[in-house]
Amino acid sequence: QSSKMTEIDWPWQYSFPPFFTLQPHAETRAKQIAAWKSLVLDYFRTTKQAILDIREIHSTPLFNNVSIDRKLPSEVVSVIVEELAKSGNATPLDKAKLRWVVSWHTLDEW
């Protein structure tokens, strides 16, 4: 796990506490979600993972920054995955939308 962590090039937002609260201001939220989307894709590509389970999000450093003691709430994770689905980077595996396949290339790109 630790070797995986060092490989990731965390963006500045990752250590900025407001990154872990969904912003009410529309323009700010758009920027925030865009940053999350690219971070999620980057993380999955670097760690070579494909499955995202909403129930297990806080066991990965991606959504749980221990150093600043902030976790991204699961509702917000859902918002981000829905956004990823819109751009074709995520597909739900079950009806409850708890498990997702994250693909860092969209099907079109393949």
Binding site: F16, P17, P18, T21, H25, T28, K31, Q32, R70
Partner: peptide, 23 residues
């Protein structure tokens, strides 16, 4: 915040406002 000049950090400690670095 409404003017886009601050953003929030809502945690168990408190609701804190930070400079809006996103923008």
């Amino acid at each position: 915040e409404k003017y886009g000049k601050a953003c929030r950090d809502d945690s168990i400690e408190a609701l804190r406002f930070y400079p809006n670095l996103f923008l």
